[in-house]
C-alpha cells in the first residue's frame, strides 16, 4: 500500500469501483463459502456422527475421536508414513534440485538441452511415471535389477519390500524434481554478479562464495521450496496409491481396490490414503471426517507457519 492516488478520490468513482470489485470477485467469494468454509464446518460436525450415506447420521459424540486416538490400528502407521515422506522426501528433493540447478548454471554450451533433460521427467503425468517406475524396479527380470545383476550387485525387491518401498518412491521423487529445479535455476541466475566479484576481491574461494553469497541470496527460495514441499507431502496420495496398486498386481475381479492400498505391509499407507480407505472404501464417513479434522489441525499449523515465512503469500507485501 504505497502511493496515494489523489486523482481517483471521487466518491462516486470509488463506489463504482467497489461495486465492480464485488462483481468480479463474486464467483470467487461464492467458491470460498461453498467449497471451503461450509465443507470445513460440515466436516467438523460430521466428525461427531456415525454416517454411511445409507442411514441418517447418528450423533455419537466423541466416539470417533476416542477410536482415532486409542484404538485405530493403522492411524499412527499411516501418520508415520506421511511424516517419513515429509522428513525424507522433501529435503532430498530440495537438495537434489538445488545441486542439479547449481551444476546447470555453470554450463554455457547447450544449456537448453541439459535443462530440458532434467526438467522433462517432471512433465510426465504422475500416474504414468509411477507405473513406469514400478515396472523398471520389478524384481525378477525388471530392467533395473537386470542391470544390477549384470554388475554383480544385489537385486532388492524395491516396491515389493516393506523396507524399500518408501525409498523407491523417493527415487521417483528425485526423478521428477524438475519442478523444484526450475525455481532454483531462476533464483541462481538472479544472484547479482557483482556480489561474486566483490567476494572474489576479498579472496573468497568457491566454497566461501557458495556459503556467503549464493546461499543467503537464495535462502527465501529454499524456504519456499521446503514449505510447499511439506504441504504437498502432507497430502501425499497418488504416487503411493498407484505404486501399491500396480506393484501388488491385484485389484480387479475378486478383490476391492482399497484392500491393496499400503502394499507392501502398509509401508506405503499414507494418512491421506487411510482417510480415503475409511471414508470411501468402508463408508465410515463420520470417522473419516474425524481423520480430516486431525489433518486440518496439522496442516493449519503448517500453513500458518508458511504465511509468516513466505513473502509471496502475504497480502500486505504484494499490494505494490
Amino acid at each position: 500500500m504505497t502511493s496515494p492516488q489523489p486523482v481517483l478520490r471521487l466518491g462516486a468513482l470509488e463506489r463504482g469501483r467497489r461495486r465492480a470489485a464485488l462483481a468480479m470477485l463474486s464467483p470467487t467469494l461464492a467458491g470460498l463459502v461453498v467449497f471451503f468454509v461450509l465443507p470445513l464446518l460440515a466436516t467438523i460436525l460430521l466428525s461427531f456422527t456415525r454416517y454411511n450415506l445409507l442411514s441418517p447420521p447418528q450423533w455419537i459424540g466423541l466416539r470417533n475421536y476416542q477410536y482415532l486416538f486409542t484404538q485405530d490400528p493403522k492411524v499412527w502407521t499411516s501418520a508415520g508414513n506421511t511424516l517419513w515422506f515429509v522428513v525424507v522426501l522433501v529435503p532430498v528433493r530440495v537438495l537434489t534440485a538445488m545441486g542439479v540447478a547449481a551444476l546447470l548454471i555453470r554450463v554455457r554450451r547447450g544449456s537448453g538441452f541439459w535443462r530440458t533433460v532434467f526438467y522433462l521427467p517432471a512433465l510426465v503425468p504422475p500416474v504414468a511415471s509411477v507405473v513406469a517406475f514400478v515396472f523398471l524396479f520389478t524384481p525378477g527380470g525388471g530392467p533395473v535389477n537386470t542391470v544390477l545383476g549384470a554388475l554383480g550387485l544385489p537385486q532388492p525387491l524395491w516396491f515389493n519390500d516393506p523396507q524399500l518401498a518408501k525409498p523407491s518412491l523417493v527415487l521417483l521423487g528425485i526423478w521428477v524434481m524438475g519442478d523444484v529445479m526450475v525455481i532454483f535455476l531462476a533464483a541462481l541466475l538472479d544472484v547479482p554478479r557483482e556480489l561474486y566479484e566483490a567476494a572474489e576481491l576479498d579472496g573468497a574461494g568457491p566454497v566461501a562464495k557458495t556459503w556467503y553469497v549464493t546461499l543467503p541470496t537464495i535462502a527465501p527460495v529454499i524456504g519456499f521450496a521446503a514449505i510447499t514441499g511439506v504441504i504437498a507431502a502432507l497430502q501425499y496420495f497418488t504416487e503411493a496409491a498407484v505404486a501399491s496398486t500396480v506393484a501388488s498386481g491385484k485389484a480387479g475381479a475378486g478383490s476391492s481396490a482399497t484392500d491393496v492400498l499400503g502394499y507392501p505391509d502398509n509401508a506405503l499407507l499414507t494418512y491421506a490414503q487411510w482417510l480415503y480407505v475409511r471414508g470411501f472404501g468402508s463408508y465410515q464417513l463420520g470417522y473419516a471426517s474425524a481423520l480430516a479434522v486431525l489433518l486440518f489441525v496439522v496442516a493449519a499449523a503448517a500453513v500458518t507457519f508458511t504465511l509468516r515465512k513466505v513473502k509471496a503469500f502475504s497480502p500486505e507485501e504484494a499490494m505494490s
Binding site: 460430521l46 504441504i231 493449519a300 500453513v303 497480502p315
Partner: peptide, 25 residues
C-alpha cells in the same frame, strides 16, 4: 481484500482431503 486474499492462500495450501467428505456427500 486482505481477508479474501488470505482465505484464498489458505484454501490453496490446505490438503483437499480435509473437505472431501461433505463435498462427496
Amino acid at each position: 481484500a486482505t481477508l479474501v486474499f488470505a482465505a484464498i492462500v489458505v484454501m490453496m495450501l490446505l490438503p483437499p482431503q480435509i473437505t472431501s467428505v461433505p463435498t462427496y456427500i
